[in-house]
Design a protein around this nucleic acid. Structure first.
Lengths: 150, 150
DNA sequence: ACAAATAACCACTAGAAACCACTTTTTCCC
DNA sequence: GGGAAAAAGTGGTTTCTAGTGGTTATTTGT
């Protein structure tokens, strides 16, 4: 099972194609033969999520099974399931981001691809740096986190 | 297990390469055969963290396992995992700092490498001395710290 | 059936990484 | 203490491949 780490600056061309960095491409080739699922992120940050297909297939049933009388659960289902798009890379290792997702995450030319272990996040470069500056460290921590020693 | 101590002034060249001081290099060769992981620091001080790979592999699963519906946990994951870069030294014992990390920690030519036991910290020289001047000792302490006798 | 939009293919350029050569400092021995 | 040798730090050059853009073929919809 591959582990995606690090951040990469990438450009999307006029046709909406974006070249996956070679390092990441290798990781994807191993975990899923290049078959990935692209979807929207549910929390307040408007970025996209990139899952290797096997990883997505573990997560999908869990989301589908959520008790959808609950408002937050319905929201999660609509965003995650309703935006999921299976993608394949072209011969040059690029993927074509669907227009819907492009506008959801406000993707323009300059993007950032952020490794998050099992998955990756895809951000508009502008929004990523905004988030870096804004996010403060003063939110409540879960106990597991307070116990960490970095 | 090596113990990194002391501070070293080092220069980064125009290509973003920096030569690890010979003393530190020996320590790294012992603990991890020169295989290190470079990442961002999560707290308010914008410096980089240098982990020997085995040390990082202890920490990484803990960070990945954090409940990421929590905001503070997401922040930590994005910073630590999202900036982590496995590095190898070139034939002259230098490492190439990725541009993303360079700008995160505002690294220019003159840097400081600070031993912190299991890991090292990498600072812009300017920011390091600023921090030395600004930081006062009047913040709240955890009980373990209050019990210390220096 | 024709046109337009999408997808696959191919060729080129620029940047990164490995390699190599030189200068400076430190250490050891005379 | 001085000199020589070895190691450490610095900078440059070359090679290769990742990234980028364009062109052609195919498919879909009208």
């Amino acid at each position: 099972m591959s582990n995606f780490l690090g951040s990469h600056a990438i450009n999307m061309d006029a046709k909406g194609r974006l070249a996956i960095p070679a390092k990441v491409r290798e990781g994807l080739a191993q975990t899923c033969g290049g078959r990935i699922v692209l979807t929207a992120n549910a929390d307040e940050e408007r970025c996209l999520l990139v899952y290797p297909e096997p990883e997505w297939e573990i997560l999908r049933p869990k989301i589908e099974a959520l008790p959808n009388m609950n408002k937050a659960a319905r929201r999660l289902q609509r965003l995650l399931l309703g935006n999921a798009a299976p993608m394949e890379m072209d011969s040059a290792g690029r993927i074509l981001v669907p227009p819907t997702l492009r506008s959801y995450a406000h993707l323009e030319k300059k993007l950032m691809l952020i490794g998050q272990g099992k998955k990756l996040e895809l951000w508009s470069e502008e929004r990523w740096f905004e988030w870096l500056d804004e996010s403060s460290g003063d939110d409540d921590m879960p106990p597991e986190m307070e116990a960490l020693s970095l």
